[in-house]
Amino acid sequence: MDIMQAMLEKNVILLGIATLITISIGALVQLVPLYTMETTIEKVDGMRPYSPLELAGRNIYIREGCYLCHSQMIRPFRDEVERYGHYSLAAESMYDHPFQWGSKRTGPDLARVGGKYSNTWHVAHLINPRAVVPESVMPGYPFLATRPLSADKIAGDMKTLSVVGVPYTDDQIENAQADLKAQANPEMGDADAMAARYPKATMGDFDGNPAVITEMDALVSYLQLMGTLVDTTSYQTSPDGR
């Protein structure tokens, strides 16, 4: 062993070859098992693709850079769980392209913000954050409440996402526009059919202006969805948050 060690220490080429072999073995041990699995994400009950209105809201969320200050990943630690709720499950991001985990929080984590506040609160917060959170450094987005939602390409977005594995059906894509309108204003479409295609979808006038579907409607519908699809009570959390 001492002779071999001495040879490796004195011969750069041999040391490089030995290092390469060691790294290759480690990589194979890590990667080969993954190819024997159908998926590395545990399937959970309740997960579904975004509705057309929620997807439009998510697109606005990304467009405005909300992910730069708000993560959507609650870590499995006591302080995180006590403040934000049950730690995030991988399956909750399985239809996100791209995912919104993030690594920086200027504002709170939003993984479970759905249902925590009313639609009115979200609208007031987005128009003028300091009206409801005096210490907030978040900029206001009042234009969202007056800008009509342009979602004529939402069916195309859904079709594209289906190519990368999001299980949108032909029926969902075909009824994208009708479902978007029905969610924002049940009187504008078949709310029952929309609810059947997208269980647990929050319906109604999100921004307080039923005359027009705005970008505010879409963004609030997305915010109200976050963390509401999976029943986390069936997942035990230990005292340390795990």
Score class of each variant (00 low, 15 high):
92 E>V: 09
93 S>P: 07
86 H>W: 06
85 G>R: 02
207 D>R: 00
108 P>S: 08
142 P>S: 04
210 P>S: 00
149 L>A: 05
192 D>R: 12
198 Y>E: 11
115 G>R: 02
101 W>R: 01
97 H>R: 02
205 D>C: 08
157 D>R: 05
89 L>F: 11
166 V>P: 15
114 G>S: 05
193 A>Q: 10
91 A>H: 11
112 R>K: 14
104 K>T: 09
201 A>V: 15
187 E>K: 12
203 M>W: 10
184 A>I: 10
96 D>A: 03
106 T>G: 14
188 M>S: 10
174 E>C: 07
97 H>S: 02
122 H>F: 14
102 G>I: 00
202 T>N: 08
171 D>F: 10
132 V>M: 03
88 S>D: 01
194 M>F: 11
88 S>R: 08
85 G>A: 00
122 H>R: 05
99 F>I: 03
172 Q>L: 03
160 T>A: 14
209 N>M: 07
151 A>C: 04
111 A>Q: 14
158 M>W: 09
151 A>T: 04
200 K>Y: 15
148 P>Q: 02
173 I>C: 06
155 A>D: 01
178 A>G: 12
166 V>D: 07
199 P>D: 07
112 R>M: 11
205 D>Q: 03
119 N>E: 01
119 N>D: 04
153 K>R: 05
116 K>M: 03
148 P>I: 01
135 E>R: 00
94 M>E: 02
108 P>R: 06
158 M>H: 08
103 S>T: 09
104 K>S: 06
111 A>H: 15
170 D>G: 11
121 W>H: 06
160 T>D: 10
84 Y>P: 08
195 A>N: 12
199 P>I: 10
123 V>Q: 06
93 S>Y: 14
207 D>P: 07
133 V>H: 02
118 S>W: 01
176 A>N: 07
93 S>W: 09
157 D>Y: 10
92 E>T: 07
114 G>E: 00
151 A>F: 04
120 T>R: 06
94 M>G: 01
132 V>I: 02
137 V>I: 04
143 F>W: 13
104 K>Q: 08
195 A>R: 15
94 M>C: 04
192 D>A: 14
175 N>A: 07
206 F>W: 05
201 A>T: 12
199 P>C: 14
206 F>L: 05
183 Q>P: 12
184 A>D: 08
96 D>L: 06
205 D>R: 03
202 T>E: 14
131 A>Y: 00
155 A>I: 05
159 K>E: 15
145 A>D: 12
85 G>T: 00
119 N>G: 01
106 T>S: 13
143 F>M: 14
123 V>Y: 02
192 D>S: 15
167 P>Y: 06
151 A>L: 01
198 Y>N: 10
145 A>G: 14
164 V>F: 15
180 L>I: 13
113 V>N: 07
178 A>E: 14
194 M>V: 12
160 T>P: 12
